[in-house]
Amino acid sequence: MRKNKRLRIALLVCGGVVLLAVLTVVLLSVLLPKDEPTQPSQDSGTSSIRFYPPYDGDIRTAEIYTRLDRQFYLYDANYGSTDALSESAIDADPELRFLRAYFNCLIDGDAAGLRALLASDANGFTIPDFAQQMVYDMKVTRVGETEESGDLRVTYRLEYRIQRNNGTYRRDVGSDAMRPEYLTLTKDENGDFRIFDIRR
């Protein structure tokens, strides 16, 4: 009789411990923050792409970003060569300097700064508010130059990846994936480059 009673007590204790362990796991999975992509809304047109929440902190000092290749590369289609650009080489070229400013706006989540880079007659697109973008593996290629009504138009192909893409700037590409973006530049009345068009 005593053995049966002890067995029942032991089973109850074991059952209680198992139940407590299960409840603990469930609560932790609900309460702890998840460092994983979240599902975009169904009307975003990107149901197969998952986005991360915006990074909380300064990405320029975050090891998860600083360990990546953040070098700026220029691809020369005529020679089939890719060169890593120094800061002095970028500073010496107005077009490259402008493209660096574009990338810096993305990295810093500076939507207002990016809007300031648009031409007054920009081709009917808008810049949304966006969070910091962990842009890396940046390569630009000058693909063409035209003149329309006396206005110079220069088009660059931009290839870059976004670590932990949060979808606030680009919703057409997943994290660490590559999908080219085409920037067409024009000059304003002061001779400064501005963005006339962005195509993806």
Rank of each mutant, 00 (worst) to 15 (best):
A84K: 04
R199D: 13
T168G: 06
S88K: 09
N190R: 12
P94M: 07
V13W: 01
L152S: 10
S149A: 13
T186L: 04
V140Y: 01
D188G: 06
Q71M: 03
S47V: 15
A122N: 15
R115N: 09
I198C: 05
T141D: 01
D110H: 05
I127S: 02
R8L: 15
Y102L: 11
L32T: 13
Q71Y: 01
A89M: 10
T126P: 00
P128S: 09
E95V: 12
D108K: 11
Q163W: 11
Y182C: 06
R200C: 07
R2F: 14
L106Y: 09
R50S: 15
I49Q: 01
A77D: 10
Q163V: 07
L68M: 11
D121S: 10
D176I: 07
T186E: 04
G113L: 09
Q39M: 13
V30G: 00
F51T: 06
F125L: 10
T155I: 10
A21S: 13
E181Q: 12
E63T: 15
E159N: 10
L12G: 15
D188S: 07
L32A: 13
R161W: 02
R142C: 09
D129G: 08
G57Q: 07
R2Y: 12
D129S: 13
P40R: 06
T126W: 00
F72T: 00
L185R: 03
F196V: 07
P37Y: 05
V154S: 04
D91R: 10
T66R: 05
V26R: 08
G113S: 04
E147G: 09
Y156N: 03
S88N: 08
F196E: 08
S149H: 06
R67L: 06
S41E: 14
R157A: 09
D93Q: 05
M134Y: 00
I90D: 00
A177W: 08
D93G: 02
R100W: 00
S29D: 13
L152T: 13
Y75E: 07
T82N: 00
A112M: 11
I90P: 01
F196W: 14
I49N: 00
I198A: 07
R67T: 11
Y79K: 04
R164Y: 14
A62Y: 08
I59F: 02
T46F: 08
P37T: 09
S48Q: 12
I127Q: 02
L74R: 02
A77L: 10
I198M: 12
S81A: 11
R67P: 00
L68V: 04
V30C: 04
L28E: 13
S29A: 14
E181F: 03
Y136F: 11
D176L: 06
R199C: 11
R161T: 07
T61N: 04
T186R: 01
S41H: 12
T66V: 12
N4H: 09
M134H: 01
L11K: 08
L117R: 03
L23R: 10
T155C: 08
L96G: 01
Q39V: 15
D192P: 05
L185C: 05
A177P: 02
G150D: 05
K139D: 02
D176R: 05
A131M: 11
S47I: 15
M178H: 01
R115Y: 02
A122V: 14
T38N: 05
R194M: 09
R199P: 01
D129E: 15
A77T: 08
